[in-house]
Design a protein around this nucleic acid. Sequence first.
RNA 1: GGAGGAGUGGCCGAGAGGUCGAAGGCGGCGGUCUUGAAAACCGUUGAACCGGCAACGGUUCCAUGGGUUCGAAUCCCAUCUCCUCCGCCA
Length: 439
Amino acid sequence: MLDLKYVVENLEEVREILHKRGAEARASIDTIAEKAEKRRRVIHRLQELRTGQNQANALMAKLDKKSGAFAQQRDALRQIASEIKGLESEHREIEAEISNLLLHVPNLPADSTPVGKDASDNPLVRSWGQKPEFDFEPKDHTDLGLALGIIDFERATKISGARFSFLLGHGSRMIRALMAFMLDLHGEEHGYTEIWSPVIVKDETMRGTGQLPKFAADSFRIDWSWDEHQENQGHDLYLIPTAEVPVTNFHAGEILDAEQLPVTHVAYTACFRSEAGSYGKDTRGLIRQHQFDKVELVRVERPDQGEAALEKLTAHAEEVLKRLELHYQVVLLCSGDLGFGSRKTYDLEVWLPGQKAYREISSCSWYGDFQSRRANIRFRPAKGEKPKFVHTLNGSGLAIGRTFVAILEQYQQKDGSVRVPDALIPYMGGVEVVKARES
RNA sequence: GGAGGAGUGGCCGAGAGGUCGAAGGCGGCGGUCUUGAAAACCGUUGAACCGGCAACGGUUCCAUGGGUUCGAAUCCCAUCUCCUCCGCCA
């Protein structure tokens, strides 16, 4: 969420910068400015009335309760009290209107985010490794996995529907191996604190990181209409689309000490996405599932460290691909392709020989104070100073399902077996090659 | 699921319709004293918002949301959270 004061004081600039996103959000900026002015007037009047009321009330306390003066004064104050009550409800209303509008406005892209229209304008930043060469026609992971007997879509569809999967044997084992490998790398070598998290969160938590209110359709909401008390719960529950949501909100509502920063967390969680609007896209295979596993990196930083931390975070995510010796490239998202809450984002794209394409396997973003303002996460720069909003960052390190896909496709051999990356062999219990399951 | 109890400032803890942003203590910060430190003593110590170039002034906040009242931390209602006991359960 943007700072209302900043928006009002820099109207032109905000309009201009949002224009780079090609966003329809610009229109609401003018409405917000109008409402902000109205809000100011209401608050001002309200305070005047209250000052008067407070002074009069102080006198009341000293008056003889049986005197005529008391009765007279009381009647006069009734008038003021009811006027205040009216203004208060007007005030509540306008605050709600403003924050509702503000919650729908995307973040301002950073200066270093290139201006562009869509993904085709994303500049290539760097590339690592080489496309593996095959003296045969490489298969895609679906064919490989089915032939090896380590993936089963049909039965998953039977029990859960489309976009779900069973993994078996070394397939299942490899998910577990990747999870442990990534957690160890980031935890032990990159210094992140491992954290295990709930995967069901309140709507306000989703609002904190920006998934709500605008992207409700992208997530799974829990239906607890079976609970006769549900209307008294005061909140909805959602399955998290990424560990970013619970982990970034870990310090929601808190004021951190400066020495606590940066807070760095690495979390493994299952992730759930409705994938509404992606009908017909990636219907085959493991690329786009309703449920997938991900190891996520989250950093909470001092504002002056925010943008620099994005480089560190991205390097940490890249290290996973390097250790696994998977060819990939890094692109910088342009303003038109940038996520709602992000100021700057690097995407890591891994090479998939079966698709002959680079596919996103990690997205590393710097949010500035966009999320911390929503989630109210602050820090005190120094003793006696006012709290300020922190900067938040997060990035996949990595999406496990897609890493599994990349390994199958980049490490496949002519006979349909798949070599296990050296770094992963210890985590696979010494298995060096995944061969067809006999069973 | 049943029965009780509790939610006050960084922490502990008073308060019980009017002068309470809230006694007292602890902790933190500044100072006096000391060769240094401790002790002792003195002072200071929350957040958000509005107005103002500023000094400063004002408003709101005692779990949350409503209500009663001229006036609520104090009374009423609802919700949330925590604790204790019983039951059930991975």
